[in-house]
Simulated scan of single mutants.
Amino acid sequence: MAAPLIELCVEGIDGFLAAQEAGADRVELCASLMEGGLTPSLATVRAAVKAARIPVHVIIRPRGGDFLYSQAEFETMREDISALRAEGVAGVVIGCLTPDGRIDEARTKELVAAARPMSVTCHRAFDMTEDAEDALEALIRCGVDRVLTSGQRDTALEGIDILRQAVAQAGDRIVIMGCGALDAGNIKAVRDGAGLKEMHFAALKTVPSGMRFRNPHVGMGGTEKDREYELTLTDPESVRATIAAAKAP
């Protein structure tokens, strides 16, 4: 099997630079990975595009939580896509569902049309659908280029049967990009077990803040107070090891 394309999920410009230097083939640029990834600032996107030697895909997700968006939220997503297209971004990452757990085809088609000629990925909103087979056909009808999925389970190892079925169902119509707690110890098994041509992971480590003064009385945004003095960063060594494992014969 040919070596898979490796996409790194990163937070902010430092995460992008670390992933690029460690050998990623492509990056999904986000803010707030603690919430599963939100749309980053325009200045962050511009910095990444300016420094990029690899394609930059940007998540279009205005908030955490579910993928059932108000009309006002949807309009901001469409405007974000237009702004990113003007910045020379290679691709966007989207996902909209209906209340009954299906792909919102009307909104997805609208976002795909707004995005072209950028590449379009459906993120793990797919994993929250009621029926994976129906959802995949819906994304194909919408013209989406790829879908990011862990096989509707917490990890790719748990979801490997659905991943394998999705690859077979997709054929050459859409790319299945596997994800879900992938690391150097399991990525090759998932690659081979599901027959994946693209894979996605976030190699993160938590390090102490450089702050010497620490106020013990305040926690921002409802987080644990200790969290104010920790940083979650892309770990270049873990990226390199996982990429090497993924691309091993």
Rank of each mutant, 00 (worst) to 15 (best):
residue 112 V to Y: 06
residue 28 E to P: 01
residue 40 P to I: 09
residue 16 F to K: 13
residue 96 C to G: 06
residue 101 G to D: 07
residue 210 G to W: 00
residue 187 I to N: 03
residue 114 A to C: 12
residue 197 K to R: 13
residue 228 E to R: 00
residue 37 G to V: 03
residue 135 A to R: 02
residue 70 S to E: 01
residue 148 L to F: 07
residue 45 V to K: 07
residue 60 I to C: 04
residue 114 A to H: 00
residue 28 E to I: 05
residue 11 E to Q: 15
residue 145 D to L: 15
residue 61 R to E: 01
residue 215 N to C: 02
residue 39 T to A: 15
residue 215 N to Q: 00
residue 98 T to L: 06
residue 99 P to W: 06
residue 180 G to D: 07
residue 232 T to P: 09
residue 198 E to C: 10
residue 33 L to Q: 05
residue 146 R to Y: 11
residue 224 E to N: 10
residue 66 D to C: 04
residue 85 R to I: 07
residue 118 M to A: 14
residue 69 Y to D: 04
residue 132 A to D: 05
residue 114 A to M: 00
residue 187 I to P: 02
residue 207 V to S: 01
residue 185 G to R: 12
residue 56 V to Y: 07
residue 26 R to N: 03
residue 183 D to F: 07
residue 244 A to M: 08
residue 187 I to V: 15
residue 204 L to A: 06
residue 178 G to K: 05
residue 132 A to P: 08
residue 57 H to Q: 11
residue 49 V to C: 10
residue 36 G to H: 01
residue 245 A to H: 05
residue 171 G to Y: 06
residue 137 E to S: 05
residue 36 G to V: 05
residue 33 L to N: 06
residue 87 E to T: 04
residue 58 V to I: 11
residue 105 E to C: 13
residue 118 M to Q: 08
residue 85 R to Q: 12
residue 146 R to I: 12
residue 16 F to W: 11
residue 184 A to R: 03
residue 249 P to R: 02
residue 166 A to S: 09
residue 116 R to I: 12
